[in-house]
């Protein structure tokens, strides 16, 4: 039996509908989206604010904050570490709030993930 046939058989053996409606899967989705939705909105708003300042608020965007360095430039540069930190926070959050639910579902079907590096 080929690998793909074996995987197909495994998939056919799973009660997808049952898991989809289970509390554990609902908790998994709820917890993931609790971070994903606000963070995407937050990032979009941060950029919208920056671009709006650059377009329509020259007094704010061009305000010199440190010597010749203006607000728009500083805000842009600050987004680099802030967004990286948000990404790092997401990976930690998933590990704590989503992965336990994932593992519970995988354990139910005896599925083991490959070892990580």
């Amino acid at each position: 039996m080929s690998d793909s046939q074996s995987l197909d058989d495994f998939r056919k053996s799973i009660d997808w509908e049952g898991i989809f409606h289970s509390d554990v899967f609902k908790a998994l989705k709820r917890n993931r989206f609790k971070f994903v939705v606000p963070s995407i909105i937050g990032v979009s708003l941060a950029f919208t604010f920056l671009w709006t300042a650059q377009n329509y608020l020259p007094g704010l965007a061009n305000m010199q904050v440190i010597g010749n360095i203006n607000f728009a430039f500083l805000f842009t540069m600050a987004l680099f570490p802030l967004i990286w930190l948000a990404g790092f926070a997401y990976t930690r959050y998933v590990g704590a709030a989503v992965e336990p639910h994932e593992q519970e579902i995988l354990d139910r079907y005896g599925m083991k993930e490959a070892e990580d590096e």
């Binding site: 690998d3 997808w16 509908e17 989809f20 993930e113």
Partner: peptide, 16 residues
């Protein structure tokens, strides 16, 4: 959708 949702969110069925 139910199968894809479970698989994509949990990894169940992505491999044996």
């Amino acid at each position: 959708y139910q199968e894809l949702s479970v698989r994509s969110q949990s990894g169940l069925g992505s491999e044996k």
